[in-house]
Design a protein around this nucleic acid. Structure first.
Lengths: 241, 241
DNA sequence: GACCAAAAATTTGCATTCATTTTTGGAAGA
DNA sequence: TCTTCCAAAAATGAATGCAAATTTTTGGTC
């Protein structure tokens, strides 16, 4: 039943207009939201630290109202915690939470791979293939940064190839939450993992070439699991330090 | 580099405290957010309709500030669109968007199934088995409502068994967005689909019994795809009407 | 010197106010 | 009669104000 509130006429243009605000692309509010999100994700505030409302207002040159709106959104994205009457705090990931987030990332990548197999074009595949070879070259010359960049690019391209807007958004959200975990950091000390990751990427490319959705889905989930395992070492070590 | 903003001391209790605000459980703001979300999800406002700010303020007995904060969050959840200077509009799903959302749901259920295979207890499995049989009984006596309820319960239990908080939250979000699509509505006219769905559920239970994660993952994704296909008929029909 | 209670100073949450923008309604003109 | 234009009205976006809660400081006691 439609409530006492009258349903205004349907907005005809709304459907065709770009969905501006959803995640906040343009529009003053969206700008601030993006800025503030970057500010947090980039690590300008220490995990577990209080988010200084007043200082941020001055920094961004705005009043508290729009800032607080942005904070509410960041809280719903899981980047910060809002404690009633006690303000906003940068969310700190415990080991369990990190594991949970990694698993979701794995699920999202698995989905992206599956969809990519259905939708990717020959050109799109070639591009990923090119990135793969570049990454392999970086691996051979032990260029950690080059490898990391290429790796990131490949995973992003797969998500892109899935051509699914909500997936893109959700993926970006979880990637942002895990941004602090520097998975690459281990590889130079964990040559085995590096080689293993490289082999997994061979499998990924192969499955994608054959457009084997289920298979790719599986590989990608396992790939993320292993990535997490490698990252967990450092996490645990850091926690113990 | 940590910015000019000084890092306040780390809040020791924050880690152990329940994550109250994230999705908004308690705390006045969270209450309003949940209320408003339900209000939209329940369909009190027509899709494509304007969200009447002032009226909602009166209805909930609050001022515009907290309402607008909640609207920003709902926009980030994808339930409404915010058009700069033009207010909030209930999001309307076109066919393509619906397809995209269904695919993400499929990916999330696939993930849930995979994780459930790793974590579910014998008691948890028995409960799902019980629900399955109850649903089958409903199917046999052509009890559409009973079937639908049981079906929903099973999928929810699988997500629950995955024991992953961010997955739970994300799943709930997408389920809410798709709430308007009444997948069950077709079954009484599409007996073939109903039987097919029932057979798929047999497979689901079987894979879960064997704790065959990858397999269950695949089945669940396909199951959702088929569910979408059935729902799409009605959607298309409705669009054509 | 450590510990605790009370008052001051911040900070939060929400209401209210104000400047812009959009929308509405109608008059003038084609 | 229909379109175009303009002014009034309403709605949005953001700043400010204020009561309640929290945190910090202060002062005193053991």
């Amino acid at each position: 039943m439609l409530d006492s509130v009258p349903d205004s006429a349907v907005e005809p243009e709304a459907a065709s207009l770009p969905r501006i605000a959803g995640t906040g692309a343009a529009s003053l509010h969206g700008t601030l939201l993006a800025q503030l999100r970057d500010y947090v994700v980039e690590g300008n505030l220490a995990p577990g630290a209080r988010v200084p409302e007043r200082l941020l207002c001055e920094r961004f040159g705005i009043s508290r109202t729009p800032l607080r709106e942005a904070l509410k959104v960041l809280a719903s994205e899981g980047l910060i915690d809002l404690l009633p009457n006690r303000g906003a705090w940068v969310r700190q990931l415990g080991p369990d939470e990190m594991v949970a987030l990694f698993d979701v990332m794995g699920g999202l990548e698995a989905l992206a791979g599956r969809l990519a197999c259905e939708k990717i074009t020959e050109a799109g595949f070639s591009e990923i293939e090119r990135l793969h070879h570049a990454m392999y070259a970086a691996y051979l010359r032990r260029d950690l940064h080059g490898y990391f960049t290429g790796n990131q690019a490949i995973h992003d391209r797969i998500v892109e190839a899935a051509d699914n807007e909500p997936l893109r958004t959700t993926y970006a959200n979880f990637a942002g939450r895990l941004r602090r975990v520097r998975y690459a950091a281990n590889l130079d000390k964990d040559r085995d993992r590096w080689g293993e990751a490289m082999r997994e990427h061979e499998e990924i490319l192969d499955a994608l070439r054959r457009r084997a959705g289920s298979e790719l889905s599986d590989i990608l989930f396992r790939h993320l699991r292993n990535k997490r395992r490698a990252a967990a070492v450092r996490e645990t070590a850091a926690a113990g330090a």
